[in-house]
């Protein structure tokens, strides 16, 4: 049986990859993909702790992940709509050129 630490390390790795992508990519869509990866890493933690916890019959981890998937779907829809609106306005999705609010 795989120990809990293996799942937690996989989750931490996915979170770090998503964070690196969100911080370094120029394209706004790739930044959103990085945020989705980080959300999924958090979901994996919930499932792993549910499975290895004292009371798996309480189903708390499972239900939290189901609600989290719902919120993430709403976030993805609104985020991509915002990116399309930004593209219509600036004719680019390059975040380095969308800087009109820079002081």
């Amino acid at each position: 049986m795989t120990p809990l630490s293996a799942y937690l390390l996989l989750s931490a790795m996915l979170f770090a990859i998503g964070l690196a992508g969100a911080l370094t990519r120029r394209n706004a869509i790739l930044v959103l993909i990085g945020i989705e990866l980080m959300l999924n890493a958090a979901n994996l933690n919930f499932i792993a702790f549910w499975r290895f916890g004292e009371h798996p019959e309480a189903l708390t981890g499972i239900l939290f992940v189901i609600f989290s998937i719902g919120v993430a779907a709403a976030e993805a829809a609104v985020g991509l709509a915002l990116i399309i609106a930004i593209y219509r306005h600036y004719k680019t999705t390059n975040l380095d050129q969308v800087d009109s609010m820079k002081g």
Binding site: A12, A16, I17, L19, T24, R25, R26, D96
Partner: peptide, 19 residues
């Protein structure tokens, strides 16, 4: 243009520290 932003080294550093 390059796909990574100009401050990519700092972003990578932050991610490595977090991991």
């Amino acid at each position: 243009q390059p796909v990574f932003s100009a401050s990519w080294l700092w972003g990578l550093l932050v991610a490595v520290i977090v991991f």
